[in-house]
Design a protein around this nucleic acid. Structure first.
Lengths: 365, 365
DNA sequence: TTGAAAGCGCTAACAA
DNA sequence: TTGTTAGCGCTTTCAA
């Protein structure tokens, strides 16, 4: 390897990346002009433009996004923090975020905490450093005092740095905190599918799953009870088993519920994955679905159709949720939008029951 | 809204983001010193350090990643381009990329093309602008002349800009092009699971799925044939049906294969999703698995255990693949590593057959 | 151990 | 229509 040339002329390393200066020199214009043709937001004479474009092509010029972010104001990047990217619930939301980000010419920084709560905050701080146009926090979090204080503080810091915080599938913060919230209708969806079960004759329904302290769980259990109330039916509180999501959890708890009672004829699983666990447990006990026990889920992720029998569940517009989150988060960046006008705006999307084969009227037993 | 203060003192907007200058002023040191304590890579007197840290805390200082990327050299970001983030195959690889990126203090830009081929290149260009430390391209691409030319060109451009290109689950480029390749053993895995089928007595096996022009497909079909050859068995070429991945495709083609012949007693589905489609088709025709037809898949994604009967398949170390990709891509960035030493280094990971319940000796029919 | 100062590559007034 | 010129916020010699 030869030493790099050290003459006073200081010729650029021909292997090095090209800058706007190189393009300007080669095209015989100023860097401002190059900037204008790159951004196309300012009139440039056709001949000049052609010369610049030619120079860019010949040099293989690639703009530096960081220099651009530093000099300009928007970074054209949105960040999303999820619990687990391989979980279809999050994956579909991420897909929506992706597609809306792409549609608005942005890239998407995806952070997956793998269930590590502290990681969420660390990622938010990293996204803060990145000056992401929007930071989208998806799904459940332990909603204690600490959480609200910390997230509220981060929301302010994000706002100060020109980013906006979007809470997706989790409740909004106190008013006055600059954050958006987009969520779907947990209570309504839960009430609807519970009523579906009630309408075919089930009254002893086991509600199964979801972290107990999670607002999503609270909202769904509320819907579950509302459906009973609407039909003037009583529900045994012992038939509500919350604690976690997950296939294994669904499996274990179904077995325990079967052993410990009280008796039930149907299961409302907090999501489709929990339902999958319940299926296995039921099958192991020789119980048929829906002959002996009916099962419904929530979310309508792809596994719902692979289960035998195919699972009746609540379809949640996950992709749309992701898209709405991006829209909310970057709206403040659009020209003549008052960022504060939308503060604490809460968007709620509807859900729909998808009837498949896992529900039948209660039978023998 | 009051006008911003216009006095000569030019006091900063108290709402604006804090910079290293603000911290330096408040701590009564220079920006260089602040930079040193932030990066902790240089000796700073304990008392000075404390003062700076205090100032940072009081001001709520957050470093600007773009300024840092511009002034420094590494961006601490890796980019990954996948076909479809909700597909578990890609999701697991993305998870591996995530975790390795996080472990090395990096963030992860995830781009999902949604099957749009042209989008891949667009994303690569965007990642080029971002000066991502590594750009990881995952999964199949149409490997024609054009592809090799274009990707080769991008690889060089990436290298020029200090990024490296990693091909993950796809073949490497010609030697001399600065790109890494990490892949898993398609041929070996396919041979192993085919032999599993052969060993219980199947000889008429339908190979089903995978884009015909894809190197992954080619490699698996090669393994499939090798297994036959190893046992000195003949295979009917009419029993190889390639074309696409996907549940629907698997379903349609199983039906067609059943109708059009030749006869077969087992199906080797190119991946678990295709197998899921085959399951549905078989069930619709009243064929039992594995009584009438045995089925095996590839990848071992979660759906494999939800299928009834649980699917025997080839476990691919998807997460490890993602991790290996990041390691390969950022290795050039590590101190005293000669980036060219690793050029075109190809890493191949092993696979293993997971036996479940979807294979039995061939029966009646 | 610390500071001064020169950039990194780009955008956006402001002038011409 | 184009050029000049300040920065944007940080890192990194080079001096002190």
């Amino acid at each position: 390897m030869a030493e790099p040339p050290r003459g006073r002329a200081r010729r650029r390393d021909p292997e090095a990346a090209r800058t706007i200066r190189d393009v300007a020199d080669r095209a015989g214009v100023s860097t401002a002009t190059v900037s204008r043709v790159v951004n196309g937001n300012y009139p440039v004479a056709a001949s000049t433009r052609a010369a610049v474009e030619r120079a860019m092509r010949e040099l293989g010029y690639v703009a530096n996004a960081h220099a651009r972010a530093l000099a300009g104001s928007t970074t054209r990047v949105v960040g999303i923090v999820v619990n687990e990217i391989v979980d279809p619930f999050f994956a579909y939301i991420a897909r929506g975020v992706q597609s809306e980000a792409t549609a608005s010419g942005r890239l998407c920084l995806v952070c997956s905490t793998q269930g590590d709560e502290a990681a969420e905050l660390r990622f938010v701080d990293l996204l803060l450093e990145q000056r992401a146009d929007a930071v989208i926090l998806v799904g459940g979090a332990v909603e204690d005092q600490d959480y609200f204080a910390t997230i509220g503080q981060r929301a302010k810091q994000l706002a100060k740095n020109g980013s906006s915080l979007v809470l997706c599938g989790r409740p909004g913060l106190e008013s006055g905190v600059p954050a958006y919230a987009v969520d779907y209708d947990n209570t309504g969806g839960a009430a609807a599918i519970t009523d579906h079960l009630l309408s075919v004759g089930h009254t002893k329904i086991l509600y199964l799953g979801g972290p107990t302290m999670l607002s999503t769980t609270t909202a769904r259990v509320r819907g579950f009870r509302q459906a009973y109330a609407a039909r003037k039916l009583e529900h045994d509180p012992a038939l509500v088993r919350t604690g976690a999501f997950g296939r294994q959890w669904g499996y274990d708890q179904t077995l325990r519920a079967l052993d410990e009672g009280p008796e039930f004829t149907a299961i409302f699983a907090a999501n489709d994955i929990v339902a999958a666990g319940a299926y296995t447990a039921l099958r192991e006990r020789g119980l048929s679905i829906p002959g002996d026990i009916s099962v419904v889920g929530y979310d309508d992720v792809p596994v719902a159709v692979e289960l035998q029998p195919a699972l009746t569940t609540v379809r949640v517009p996950l992709e749309e949720l992701g898209r709405a989150a991006v829209r909310a988060g970057v709206s403040g960046q659009e020209p003549n939008a008052d960022p504060f006008a939308h503060q604490q705006q809460v968007t709620t999307l509807g859900t729909v029951v998808v009837v498949r084969d896992s529900v039948a009227p209660p039978g023998r037993r």
